[in-house]
Design a protein around this nucleic acid. Structure first.
Lengths: 169, 169
DNA sequence: CGCTTGTTTCAGAAACTTGTGAAGTTAAGG
DNA sequence: CCTTAACTTCACAAGTTTCTGAAACAAGCG
């Protein structure tokens, strides 16, 4: 039997955690398969698994793995690696990459802001509704401005607590 | 016709904005009807509408309004008012109430943290996977700590820019 | 006390999402 | 150059979700 995903740990406890954590991600809006794959990757010591390993642990078809991984790669939550001299692909979580992706809603924020600006125009800047939109817009602009500083503080905090790079950097 | 929802504005432009803004909310994870109702309320000058007005503007059944409004009330994004001496109900957005609700993911954060703590145990605190979980947990704890301060800064910023209470307080 | 008007609940139809099997594509290794 | 292993794409079936019409339910008003 291979050791790549279960050496020394209680595989059942790990699996329970993977599923419950994935459920949280689903509740937060992620679709099920990407959530499960992501949770599985986070929970393995190597931080990376092959398609076959993922399929075996999660009991899903290669097609499901493929779809989940495509989504995760597009959203920069995992990266793909090819081990040279084999056509096996490994999918890897980059340690900090993933929660930075979580906060990197900048694109989302930008779209919201654009939408709100349009709203201020449609509703009339001098109407009560228009003023309400303006304030909402200001809120998002404020958040966007604070985000970068927040992440900077986090990096400093992490370095102090965990040392450079953090786990599995 | 009544003036309550469209006085002086181009109703078609307003409707276009309502739908496009609702689409953004849907993309961010909200279900369709609550998103549309919420967008409509945000876009009317009074900041409140009756069930009938909502049904007419959005072309949806009373049942759909009822369901959407129940969800929005449960999540504190609108409040219900009864105008005395009538059984018409008005649904109202409280100006700032709604985006505070957006950031009040504290419950969500708490659950994530609990889940992650469980993960550290399941995986073993001294394993690479366990250390990765610890760092993720630390990240969420950090964010949680910063959130309150962030909202405080926003309130100060808003007061400076818009004056006390903001639009339609 | 019953009428009228507004809201909620519920069962079901329609639409959408999701995961699978099977066929297709690419690339390593003999 | 052919075989074989791994990944991807596609059509479809199963399972959910979602909105509606109809009926039940409440509450003001004559």
């Amino acid at each position: 039997m291979n050791e790549s995903a279960g050496s020394g740990r209680d595989p059942e406890a790990v699996s329970r955690f993977v599923e419950s954590f994935a459920a949280q991600l689903v509740e937060a809006g992620m679709t099920r398969m990407p959530a499960r794959v992501f949770a599985a990757l986070l929970s393995c010591d190597e931080g990376s698994m092959t398609s076959a390993e993922l399929g075996e642990q999660l009991r899903i078809s290669p097609a499901a793995v493929s779809g989940a991984v495509r989504y995760l790669a597009q959203t920069h939550m995992v990266s793909r690696e090819r081990e040279p001299g084999s056509r096996r692909e490994r999918y890897r979580v980059h340690g900090d990459q993933w929660y930075e992706a979580l906060t990197n809603r900048e694109n989302v924020l930008k779209r919201w802001e654009a939408s709100l600006r349009e709203g201020v125009t449609s509703l009339g800047a001098d109407t009560p509704a228009g003023r309400r939109m303006s304030e909402t817009l200001a809120f998002f602009e404020f958040i966007e401005g604070e985000l970068a500083a927040l992440m900077e503080r986090w990096r400093a905090h992490r370095e102090k607590t965990f040392g450079r790079g953090g786990p599995q950097g």
